[in-house]
Design a protein around this nucleic acid. Structure first.
Lengths: 202, 202, 202, 202
DNA sequence: TATGAATGAGCCTTCATTCAT
DNA sequence: CATGAATGAAGGCTCATTCAT
């Protein structure tokens, strides 16, 4: 399905895109370093960006589906349990997402740091925007933070996760850090919720 | 101190840099759209990047000094109060930083989103790296999260702040969101700390 | 090994370099007049200077090797015969060098008159400097002219040869002139040597 | 007659022209380093080249007149004495010319090595061409070397003189070297003449 | 499938010079 | 006398892409 030629080009392109970013990377150099000519490349791809997509698509889709799954789980929760449930959700969904990202670190970096000039630019934000309806439930009458705040927090959380994966630390260290961070987020939110409710009663 | 010519160039450059990013923006187009020739530009600046710097320097310096000031305040706290104190610190320092960023929204966006190809690339991360010694105090024996986790959190916090400012929301809305988020962070951390201490006693 | 395209570019470039010198010649004009675009050029060469080198390298190497050969012959002479021998050496080596230069007149002119801005700038002086150890023998106890004088003379001789070749005169006329000039040099030197020796005896 | 402004510009221009050559030197940089603006320059000179000329004219004229004087002396010699006389002429005229050149070393270097792009390009050759009628006498029935050969030799001699002056050696060393070289030239020529005459007799 | 020659637009920068003030 | 803003042309070079073979 994928020829030796493509394989070689992919391998070299990965290095270049990681090092220089999509736009700054030179297709001619990638192709030349792969041992082929420009013409050969265009037998497989129509545009430079198609090469980027080839490197990144599976990982991107995997991330989207995993994040979507988290969203869907949250959505299914009864409104009163959204809050307590969400933390557990994250906690239980995190390991798989984390493992997935760690197994595709290069591609993740491509998506998050090297995609300027491609449709994957602002990949994470776009995903979050797209799935935002899932998270909207946590905003509302029973919960006191604004849509803006929750939006920022959710985004921030996934950016943080990306940074964690790309930090270069060992898997276990990252996992522990993320568990702690999850704790902080959820405890912080629960506490805020409780406090506000108490205030309301007065 | 700044001529009409520069003013016009700055104004047009701001639009182009915001739209295309530093690298992708064409100096020729900026200058032409400003109503001048390339040669005129180089009477004022030595390099394309100098133009970017001219647009951004004051804001960048302002951000650095304000963040540094927060760090220094935290550093001065006695170790036992770092934690409770830090939240207050942030809370009290935030309004000024926030106002500053909101007053220089375009420049802030330039710094955070359009600086690829300039020395301001990764501006926030660099600032945080540089000031990291201030925050290290919160990692240590009395506090249970790893250096990685605290590093990620601090970075994440300022990125979130940047996103908030650039969200386009009204100042008050942003300020409220940030106060809530501060609350969540600090309550979350205090809670985690307390819980861990209780666990230790057993 | 060399395409029609390169051939055409070489031909046009030769004219331009001869007329304007390397630096003053416009690559854009050369390429355009050759019937191609700038991009085409850079498929063959990495830099403007590489084009110059392509035109000139073989000739430059040929000159260096021929001059080196003369130097080596001189070096092998026993000290007492350096002087009488050198003249013969030159006389016998000259025809080949002269023919070589005349066969590559354009390239020679490029090297001697049009190389400003390239590594071949000061080509002849550099060659002479590099081979200077060969000629040093003629300076010393048995010979009365200073290192400066001999250095100047040797340099002058080869510059003169270059001028002769580039004079536009017919081969035979040039050859005859050079033979006469060789005669003058050698007779002049021998005479000076003899006279000084006689003076010493007194 | 020459203002402080011009003086300063001249001084800086001299350095730049010596270092970079006329063409490669940047007028803007010269003027700026002199502490003035481009506009100021054009109050004194119409073109960049005029500045070069201002630096060089007196020296160039001095050289021309001195060389012309040598030529005129040679011209006045009766035909039979051209040969023996010429050597003396050179020998007697040399010191003054040499001193003149040494006193104007910078200007001489400008003329001989840095004048590309000005009317002084090929200054020496042009002078020699222009004065060539003076030297033609030494070619002819009584003298056996061709016009080409004598032309080359005369040119070569003055080039050598220029190199000597610019060698950086001490005045006395240069003078001695030139005396020796004169000797070689004249002895060589006399000898050739004598030998040829003897051959003719046979 | 792969070549490799060629395109054409674009890049940032430098220059000598002019001219209104 | 000097300023300094502006010109306008030119410079070498890189790029993604096309296409006949």
């Amino acid at each position: 399905m994928i020829t030796k030629t493509q394989e070689k080009i992919h391998q070299v392109a990965m290095q270049h895109f990681l090092r220089d970013g999509f736009r700054q990377a030179s297709l001619r150099k990638i192709v030349a370093e792969s041992g082929f000519t420009s013409g050969a490349f265009y037998g497989y791809y129509k545009k430079k960006e198609d090469l980027f997509e080839a490197l990144v698509k599976d990982t991107a889709d995997g991330i989207v589906s995993r994040i979507t799954k988290i969203g869907e789980s949250v959505e299914k929760l009864p409104r009163e349990q959204v809050f307590s449930g969400m933390s557990e959700m994250f906690e239980s969904a995190l390991p798989e997402l984390l493992d997935f990202l760690l197994e595709h670190q290069d591609e993740t970096r491509l998506l998050l740091k090297c995609s300027d000039g491609t449709t994957y630019n602002n990949f994470l934000s776009d995903v979050m925007d797209h799935e935002m309806n899932y998270w909207e439930k946590i905003t509302g009458e029973n919960f006191p933070i604004s849509a803006l705040a929750s939006n920022l927090l959710i985004n921030s959380y996934f950016n943080l996760l990306g940074d964690a994966v790309l930090s270069g630390a060992a898997r276990e260290e990252i996992a522990k850090a993320m568990r702690d961070i999850n704790d902080i987020y959820s405890k912080g939110m629960m506490n805020l919720l409780k406090e506000r409710k108490e205030n309301e009663k007065l």
